[in-house]
Design a protein around this nucleic acid. Structure first.
Length: 584
DNA sequence: TTAACCTGTCATTGT
DNA sequence: GAACAATGACAGGTT
């Protein structure tokens, strides 16, 4: 809808006119300033920020509550459930020695020792139960984990399976030495060659091939014996002797409730962000860089509005007949670098000031305009679009002025006063100095054309000086407007980026929870399998092996060895030293 | 009257 | 070096 049509409509409704005038974008400020959607977006952003703050508060509370169960990763700064490591500690307490190093992972077959860092190539490992156990061997240092990740007292899993650090069982009690001989050769068993050794050749080792499980059962008796010698806790219930030895490796893992809690929190954080507003923001800001501006939506069009204002002013001022050459040349230069393209100008000009009514009054301050007055002077429409530096209509060619016949003499004076008020200081100066061309030309003409224009007139030094000042100030004015809009856009874009990052963080946190949950499930499976296998093992007398004295070790060839814990501990220490030496 | 905000302007710097 | 854009700082006007 054109501006004239607005005025026409305005004549029928003074209030509407007032609104329209308030919407007039022909101020120094860019149209973006008045852009309702833009301001709406701003408000949305602010609102969301406030909401975000509330969310943050809420999240903070949640985080605070969570902090009891979360530990902060010193390296990444990420917090993670403390229960998880606590579980690990309980696991390590029960199975290997307290100093069980991660390096043991490949050699010790203690599924209960699964560490948080265990690899996720579980598919392969699940192909072979023992392979899974190998993964479990990646246990964390027990003592450290005990200190750092003490499971909450109320944790059922850890309570059931955790072993007191000083439990004699953990004191390297090596019954195997009495029955299985010295340890000197045991070290050899842990060497890579061990795997190639005939299992049967070592009396200390009981080869346990997966395929032999059935034979084992047949050899060592029924599962009933398991109940006799195997601590019930190995099967899920506590036992005074063996209980601590086979703690639930998963006891420290996030329990379901906690995981769900985290998920819900994350979800709330993420979804607390109003999707509508989010999408709105996304639509509003499609500029990729913080500084880039969407000429059609973003405030960047300030310059365009500026340009539109100037062009519209010139065109409207010359609307009567001669579409001034000035307007054409001005539109060429249009707005200053910040944005402004002719299309935008045209578009905005065509849109008039209507599009963003509600908010325009807020941001469109027509310092020198009296809407009431203007509403009475529809032919002065160009005033509304007149750029601050545009020459006042009185200074324009008579052809640019509306027919005098349409004016009353009484109103003429008012109009003159009003127009005087509409003019900027430079316009007043220009008129006082009788500058023969408009400020629009002075400001917006390219240098060459500008100089050419000056050369056409005989101008005094004072006039030339004023013209240069007008040009400088005019350009700087637009530059300042662009600069301010750019700054505003930058802020808005940064706000959007913050929101995006918050969403990403929530998503990643949710994924992390999912991974931890699946890991816990896998550990539970491994634990049950380990217990099942270990519980079925029987010595020569048909008695079950004590978990505190023996452990299953997975060999690379797929076989499983039953080894004394002391061996495992020693091997663990040796492998623990290796990485340290390498670092040195 | 005052504070907050908007806008124009100047000075400066970088391109 | 001129022209210009960008920007911080300031002042004046408006709400």
């Amino acid at each position: 809808m054109g501006w004239e049509s607005h005025i026409t409509a305005a004549s029928a409704d003074i209030d509407l006119i007032d609104i329209l005038w308030r919407q007039d974008i022909d101020l120094g400020a860019g149209r973006e300033v008045f852009d309702y959607s833009h301001r709406q977006k701003e408000q949305d952003v602010e609102k969301e920020l406030r909401d975000g703050g509330e969310q943050d508060t809420w999240a903070g509370e949640g985080a605070e509550a969570l902090a009891r169960n979360l530990l902060v990763d010193g390296e990444t700064g990420e917090s993670f459930p403390a229960q998880f490591p606590a579980d690990i500690s309980s696991i390590t307490e029960a199975v290997p020695s307290e100093s069980e190093p991660p390096a043991l992972q490949n050699n010790l077959l203690s599924p209960l020792l699964t560490g948080t860092e265990s690899p996720f190539d579980l598919e392969q490992q699940w192909q072979d139960l023992m392979s899974i156990m190998e993964m479990q061997a990646m246990e964390v240092n027990t003592s450290a984990s005990e200190i750092l990740y003490n499971a909450p007292p109320g944790d059922p899993l850890s309570t059931n399976y955790s072993l007191a650090p000083n439990t004699p069982i953990n004191q390297n009690v090596s019954l195997h030495q009495a029955s299985l001989g010295g340890c000197s050769q045991d070290f050899l068993l842990f060497s890579p060659e061990v795997e190639s050794l005939p299992v049967a050749s070592s009396s200390t080792l009981l080869p346990l091939a997966p395929s032999n499980s059935t034979s084992l059962n047949s050899t060592f008796g029924s599962t009933n014996l398991t109940g006799l010698f195997f601590p019930p806790q190995l099967n899920g219930t506590a036992n005074d002797t063996a209980g601590p030895e086979l703690p639930d490796p998963l006891g420290g893992l996030l329990d379901e409730a906690m995981l769900d809690e985290i998920s819900l929190m994350d979800l709330a954080i993420e979804e607390g962000f109003n999707p509508v507003q989010a999408s709105q923001l996304e639509e509003e800001f499609d500029s990729d860089s913080g500084l880039s501006l969407d000429s059609s939506h973003s405030p960047s069009s300030l310059s365009s509005s500026e340009g539109s204002s100037s062009s519209s002013s010139s065109s409207s001022s010359s609307s009567s007949s001669a579409s001034s050459s000035a307007s054409s040349s001005f539109s060429e230069e249009g707005a200053v670098g910040y944005s402004s393209d002719s299309e935008t100008l045209d578009l905005e000009e065509a849109e008039g000031a209507v599009g963003y009514q509600p908010e325009y009054s807020k941001f469109c301050r027509m310092s020198y305009q009296d809407p009431a007055q203007l509403s009475c002077l529809p032919y002065l429409e160009h005033v509304g679009h007149n750029h601050t530096y545009n020459m006042a209509p009185s200074a324009l060619d008579s052809a640019d002025l509306p027919p005098p016949s349409s004016l009353k003499k009484g109103s003429k004076e008012k109009q003159a006063d009003f127009l005087d008020k509409q003019m900027s200081r430079d316009e007043h100066r220009a008129r006082a100095m009788k500058i023969p061309f408009t400020n629009d030309k002075i400001i917006n003409l390219p240098v060459e054309e500008f100089n050419e224009l000056l050369s056409k007139y005989q101008l005094s030094e004072a006039q030339l000086s004023l013209i240069r000042d007008i040009r400088r100030r005019g350009k700087n004015k637009m530059a300042a407007q662009n600069c301010r809009k750019r700054k505003l856009d930058t802020i808005l874009n940064l706000e959007r980026d913050v929101e995006d990052l918050q969403r990403d963080k929530a998503r990643l946190l949710r994924e992390k929870v999912e991974f931890l949950r699946s890991l816990r499930q896998m550990k539970q499976k491994v634990q049950s399998l380990y217990q099942e296998v270990f519980g079925r093992l029987r010595d020569e007398n048909g008695r079950p092996y004590s978990p505190s004295q023996y452990a299953l070790q997975y060999a690379g060839d797929g076989s499983v060895l039953l080894i004394p814990r002391t061996m495992a501990d020693q091997q663990a220490r040796r492998q623990e030293r290796k990485p340290k030496d390498r670092r040195k």
